[in-house]
Amino acid sequence: MAKQGRILGVGPTDNTSDQRTPRQRLRLIPDVARASFVPVVPARYAANPHEWDMTCTAPDRPRAAGVPIEVTGRLRTASGRAVAGALLEVWSANHYGRYRHIEDHSGLQLDENHLGLGRVLTDDEGHYRFWAISPGAYLARPDIGRWRPKHIHMSISGGSSRLITQMYFPGEPNNATDPMAILMGDAFERNLGKPRETGTADVEEAYDFDIVVGGRNATFFE
């Protein structure tokens, strides 16, 4: 059968997904035009030096409520090349499931010691590290009792490697009903942080989350 573009899935019980998911099959990009679909993000990133520690708003401020965690991992392309000097933009809800975002009207509790925003760069071997507060789950669809499982958002920009994803937590009861997790199917496992010992880090839990940027874009200029 001739190769075809994907038909995107609509997230079950996700109204926004229903409103915004293209219904037509995606078109294949003609070979002659393929490279033009590969944005290269200029490496001119901003990041404040304390942003790797999202458990407090500034180094001299108290820790936010909840469980402090460390997340580490390695960023690679599907061909195995480490992506060095890439920017990870990280955002997550506080212990109570609230984002400190002007458009979060959930009314859930804010935490005076929590911003939930951080930016870190990968090192020469693609490794990254940040601390965060283990985010709270929140009720996304009160009408049907559907929760968003706890998750941490990550946006990755490294040359032609580009990915927006989320890290989830193993064993969470709401994982199974999450619309995006349902669309991932068995591959959802790849988006789970893997618990590990905390070592000497001043946190209560630690997770490894290796990230692989798939598709051809990431490897175009290798």
């Binding site: 926004t16 458009e103 946006s155 990915l163 989320q166 991932m184 290796d210 990230i211 692989v212 598709g215």
Partner: peptide, 17 residues
């Protein structure tokens, strides 16, 4: 390598960024 799944950026992509 199996690729990490893309996921939605959700409604709260930080304006801060």
């Amino acid at each position: 390598l199996p690729a990490t799944n893309e996921d939605t950026c959700g409604p709260y992509f930080p304006i801060y960024f």
